[in-house]
């Protein structure tokens, strides 16, 4: 379990994190989304104990990470850009991890070693970004972590390997009940893997919600009428947006759409169905409601 309370971080005059609080329950996958410079990596570096916070605390399984670094023997960490010792080979890094993490599992390592095709003796300085990420995943999944913290874990990986890695993460949670915290700007990946999503922008968490709840809160209804959409329905306060393509209307609704569906049925629609929205669509509306433009935050 991860618990962050009122975390702040300033670099000189610049406030990078501003009162970040969040909680990730055991066995859940938390996705943190935000643009470059939002504070994702700083937050993760503080969570891992590398940077000291200006204020606030980070607890992993009830222990303050900065006061009790031993708790990190249960934590796997894959950085955005992995820095290992340039002169170390894969074998050297494995030796270092094996001696450091008490839960290191040889069977798991052997299993993952077959997935990641890495040269045993080549030194780390000659690794590509994708190979660095693969090595980091290999090492950090082999230590059987209770908590896995990942910063852009699939960057630099080819699409096949990316899919494989995401599958591994889901498998990790299912098999071991690992708590996963993943920071990324790739919404599609989060949609497939996360239970809970937080959005960080300019060092502040804009929202932090269960993915299913988010999906429930914003619904899209596809409807077609012979004589067009009755105007009174388009003006309902729970309607966020109406899109029209010919006689087919896409109505994006806030909260419960059952009442709206009943209303629509009364007008004898030619077509009426509720369709799932993509996470990106949900974000667009969710952030619009908070007064932010999605493109200002995500598409950078």
């Amino acid at each position: 379990m991860i618990e962050i309370t009122d975390l702040t971080k300033t670099f000189g005059a610049s406030q990078v994190l501003d009162g970040v609080s969040l909680e990730v329950q055991r066995g859940r996958v938390y996705g943190l989304v935000g643009p470059n410079g939002a504070g994702k990596t700083t937050l993760i570096k503080i969570m891992m104990g590398f940077l000291l916070p200006t204020g606030g605390r980070v607890f992993i399984d009830g222990q303050d990470v900065h006061q009790h670094p031993r708790i990190k023997s249960q934590v796997g960490y894959v950085a955005d850009y992995q820095n290992y010792y340039p002169g170390f080979s894969v074998n050297d890094m494995v030796r270092f991890y094996r001696g450091t993490f008490e839960n290191w599992n040889e069977e798991r390592f052997a299993e993952l070693r077959r997935v990641f095709d890495l040269p045993d003796k080549r030194t780390f300085k000659n690794f590509s970004k994708g190979m660095r990420t693969q090595l980091a995943l290999l090492l950090n999944l082999s230590l059987m972590p209770n908590v896995l913290i990942l910063d852009e874990p699939t960057s630099g990986l080819d699409p096949v390997l990316r899919r494989q890695v995401l599958g591994m993460l889901v498998d990790e949670v299912a098999r071991n009940g690992t708590t996963v915290f993943v920071a990324t700007h790739n919404l599609n990946e989060l949609e497939r893997t996360c239970d809970q999503i937080g959005m960080i922008h300019q060092g502040r968490i804009l929202f932090d919600e269960n993915l299913e709840d988010m999906k429930q809160k914003v619904r899209k209804i596809q409807v077609a009428f012979a004589d067009g959409l009755p105007p009174e329905l388009a003006k309902r306060p729970d309607v966020l947006k109406v899109e029209q393509q010919g006689r087919v209307y896409g109505i994006v609704m806030r909260e419960n759409s059952a009442e709206m569906l009943a209303e629509l049925k009364k007008h004898d629609p030619l077509l009426l169905e509720t369709i799932d929205m993509s996470l990106e669509d949900i974000f667009i509306y969710r952030m619009g409601g908070l007064g932010y433009e999605f493109s200002d935050i995500i598409a950078q």
């Binding site: 891992m48 104990g49 590398f50 670094p69 990190k72 950085a79 820095n83 290992y84 450091t100 993490f101």
Partner: peptide
């Protein structure tokens, strides 16, 4: 210079 303090301090070492 190597950026490995980030790795070392993310491990269970004080």
């Amino acid at each position: 210079d190597q950026g490995t303090f980030g790795l070392l301090l993310a491990m269970p070492y004080s």
